[in-house]
Design a protein around this nucleic acid. Sequence first.
RNA 1: GGCCCCUUGGUCAAGUGGUUAAGACAUCGCCCUUUCACGGCGGAGACAUGGGUUCAAGUCCCGUAGGGGUCACCA
Length: 541
Amino acid sequence: MDYKDLANLIFPDIKDYTYYEEKYPERNLPEGAEVLRVAPSPTGFIHIGGLFQGLLAKKIADQTGGVFFVRIEDTDQKRKIDNGVEEILNAFEKYGLSPDETVGRGNYGPYIQSERGDIYKSYAKKLISEGKAYPCFCTPEELEESRSNQEKAKERTGYYGKWAKCRNMPIDMAIEKIKNGVPYVVRFRSPGNPERKIKHKDVIKGSIDFPENDLDIIIIKSDGLPTYHFAHAVDDHLMRTTLVTRSDEWVSSVPLHLQLFYELGFKIPKYGHTAPLMKQDGDSKRKLSKRKDPEAAVSYYTEEGIPKESVIEYMMNIINSNFEMWRKQNPDKDINEFEVDIRKMGVSGALFDMVKMHDVSKNVISRFSAEKVYEDAKAWAEVYDSELNEMLENKEYSLRILGIERGNQKPRKDIAKWSDLKDIIYYMYPEKFNKMDKNAFEYQKVTDKSEIEKIVKLYFEKYYNENDDKETWFNKMKDLAGELGYAREVKEFKANPDGYKGHVGDISTVIRVTLTGKCNTPDLYEIIRILGKEEILRRVK
RNA sequence: GGCCCCUUGGUCAAGUGGUUAAGACAUCGCCCUUUCACGGCGGAGACAUGGGUUCAAGUCCCGUAGGGGUCACCA
């Protein structure tokens, strides 16, 4: 009895690995092209970090003329949920990160790990027949016991060396146990020695030194599915990944992965480990947590109504901080024209800054056309805000509102997310204005009730004319100010503050607040035009 | 605890031995302005710490402190 017999017993009727090597040949790509992937798990929770990884991978693939694909890692059957795969794929599509290959398209599939069982078995069989892997019959209880013994003896924990009980089990005994139906897993027989150091060059982190791996990790679980480590090696080899980008929680497994690739006879890909997205928590930072932080979920941005363009734009800032400069110089260029340099990525975790996200979003939205603002806000409101949705029912009218001070050199930057919009445009809708509490209006400087009445009355009796152009309109505002003892120009007032009751700005604020209930609004002239004479007069009654 | 990594203003960050140590967000002041934004100008604010190496250290080396990651039949 030898390793071959053992391999055949464990994996009968499994194709030889050479079959897969031929089926998934090296990709025929131009020099310098990189093949990248993102490999999420369908747990029902889509982490913002997954999107971040996707953006990075797609950018590098696109700009090198390579391939970006999405592989579903669902070997943990316990955490898997029903629509998980669709949700992930939809999220990538929605954010413009459409993969070149994934479930349903591409020649290197299947792209779902649970459908690749035979492939993993084929390579596991290869390892067993070469004596590089072996069945392990240890029970969880035995492993636990071994672990506590290690702790007592102050030795490194794990399945290695003398602690690896099944590592040197005679083949005949193993065969016997299997034939008797004793449950087992398949372990990798690590040739490593931690006394030896290896030097690894990470594309993002630079040189890292670690001891060689000597852990006999499980490669095939008792349910027959591979563990992450083994699936990673087999899949990224067969899918011909050239650059493995992933979150840096994986760096500590690099020695293992390198060893696995080597022992399997695979060409080793490049690795780039990205710093995780962090969150300020009291005095310290920690990883964005899906349990504690709502903003860790992609769905949060959808619900808040932060446009997908804003999220992508913000994440580009984190990927390469010089993106910001580039954007300033090229406000209208497509994001694809920006060249990402993976080596410039930060090596330590960046705080995910919602304030900055909002700022980025304000800029992004300020570049949208009124039509685009309308469409996006409407789509959001249909799902999340029925009142806003109702307000936006009248498209033509809404478009006029959203078009105020938009499209010019210095567009307004007041909307960060669609959930802000209702408050910003509320007063423009007559039936909503009616609901506002007039007594709660804050008039800033001029607060005397009779003075306010006097200003409003005089304005509408003597000056207001709906056909005035903007210049005439504003000149009349100055006339009004003058007539009531306010300075016609702010400068005049500042030069002689005691000579006037106030200035034209104070007057126009009174009109503004009376008509809108707010002192911070866009251009008053535009507002008056849009509201129309009838509505305006109704409001001052 | 072992192993690995990291540390420049409140935050994100330029920086590859010689810089008055960029820029952005936030903050403050001024200007522009009929309000609020926008925009412009300016202010305050940083190389964790101790030793070395060097003519010269944010940058290289060592120690210390702090932070993060990882040590599963989860990925």
